[in-house]
């Protein structure tokens, strides 16, 4: 597959994502500056983590106006796979490709630590290869990753199976202690109604090799790759 990794001014997970996609999973990937307007050569788009425009305003609030975002919205509306990780998730919420918002961590501090994520229901090419109930070990690194939405939106997300990952403990139990940032209902990742757009605060690209602590994050990329292979073969 050919991945477009979008680099906004202040993005820093671009190289890490490139490393995992290109060097570990041997896929084609390009890092694209935010002034790019053509994504027609790509099969999937990644909005990586970082501090776009310094996040001095609301996180992602300026990046959503970057020239590339019109193309990203078109790409998503065409049903093609888009993932927003960390700051990318914030950009997706600001762009209204996903509902809700990411507010300041309940601790009021930045948190960089490993978390456990439980795969919940909901069909998306980003996670269809991961059986429900699977526990993944993936780190977070953010100051504003506390997922917030009004109760109706949360109920709608739950009802439609759009909560894809929840923070849990090592045994897969969803508990308050396992929630690293105060997210509503321990939500770590959600999809759009169609399932092609995934936003998540944890960093799968930081869990791509045993050497740096684990490779569970690859399950997400591999899910998409398997789907693509199936489509091609079918």
């Amino acid at each position: 597959m050919r991945f477009a990794i979008i680099r906004f001014p202040g993005t820093w997970s671009d190289r890490d994502t490139y490393h995992v996609l290109h060097n570990v999973l041997e896929q084609q990937a390009d890092i694209l500056w935010h002034r790019e307007t053509d994504l027609s050569n790509y099969d999937a788009v990644v909005l990586p983590g970082g501090f776009s425009y310094g996040d001095y305003l609301r996180c992602g609030a300026i990046a959503r106006f970057s020239p590339v975002m019109d193309a990203v919205v078109d790409f998503a509306e065409a049903g093609k796979p888009v993932i927003g990780i960390c700051n990318g998730f914030q950009v997706l919420c600001e762009s209204h490709l996903l509902p809700g918002a990411l507010i300041r961590n309940q601790s009021l501090q930045f948190r960089c630590q490993w978390t456990y994520l439980r795969r919940e229901g909901g069909s998306t090419p980003w996670a269809d290869g991961i059986p429900d109930g699977t526990v993944l070990h993936v780190p977070i690194s953010h100051g504003e990753g506390n997922y917030f939405a009004d109760p109706d939106t949360l109920n709608e997300l739950e009802l439609r199976g759009r909560v894809v990952f929840r923070y849990c403990d090592a045994a897969g139990e969803v508990t308050p202690a396992a929630n690293p940032n105060g997210s509503a209902r321990n939500i770590a990742g959600i999809i759009n109604a169609r399932g092609n757009v995934l936003g998540m605060m944890p960093h799968p690209e930081r869990a791509g090799e045993q050497l740096v602590g684990g490779a569970d994050g690859n399950r997400i990329w591999e899910s998409l790759l398997r789907q693509a292979t199936t489509i091609l073969a079918g």
Partner: peptide
């Protein structure tokens, strides 16, 4: 409180 993992 410090990002100690970025750059992989």
């Amino acid at each position: 409180q410090y990002d100690h993992q970025v750059l992989n």
